[in-house]
Amino acid sequence: MIPTFKKFDTQFNFAFIDENTKREIRRKLLKAICIPGYQVPYSSPEMPIARGWGTGGLHVTLSVIGKDDRFKIIDQGSDASVNACNLRDFVHRVTHCRVTFDTHEATLIQTRHRIPEEQLNDGQILVFQVPQPEPLRAVERYETKTREMHGEADYARMWVSLYEAFVRYGDIMQGAGYPVMVNGRHIMSPSPIPRWDVPNLNQSDCLYLFGAGREKRLYAVPPHTDVVPLEFEDVKFRIEQFSGIRCSMSGTGGAFMDELYNDLGDFRHVINDSDFLDKLVERKTRPQQWSNKYLQEVLDEMNANTDPQP
């Protein structure tokens, strides 16, 4: 039994951040939802961890979390990595709210660089920790200029950089943080999620909130919003294929894979999302995954190549 949080029993406010700052972040979150993909500047107050280690995600999480929330946090798909464990302990200590590993059960999920493999529903909020919110930073170093470019929807240089990448390397090279067009107006960095996750931002049921603590920016993608990866007519966006690759623990595919190396230099593949893998291995059920055409192609190919097991 987890004790409920009682005001004045602790030396800090509920959810650590003071109420004035929470209000400021909440107002900015509402603005972010009203202009999908636009980066709203905010105060980014001091936290007990350094900026750039997940403070933006924490600011958003702690401003929206309530006593009844069930909180889950993942770091690169894993509930058990260092960043996830420490931030989970912190959020639990300052709110006493329930924490869970189960993606389906959670109401509020903070994530570093992955979207869970299991489809999220309309009662859930996914909070991203974002290192670099500005998709145009690679082509324009000054914030005043990129603000104008966003204001005027002047994205010519972004398109040119994608074209140049294709000319030089034969493909658009962004692996993580592939730029997307939101609501047909703003180009947005989806945070360094793999391409595999990018289509799941489009027309989802859940609300996506993004917090960049070091860069002091918040942005959002509301449910049922058009999110389109940048692509050319003849050079299309593709996701990672993992062709013919099976997870060494669950024996299945159709999910984003990690390569695990041993001391001899050999490697094996394991499904990256730890909760998804747990459900496959322990409960022998495959949770409801997202539906998008890119994933469907991968699943179709996997099912076509499956040999009948003896």
């Binding site: 509920f14 939802i33 929206v64 309530g66 509301p222 449910p223």
Partner: peptide
């Protein structure tokens, strides 16, 4: 906090 979550829910939907 409770009311903000409801406002945010209505604003997002």
């Amino acid at each position: 906090q409770t009311h903000f979550r409801l406002i945010m829910d209505s604003m997002a939907r």
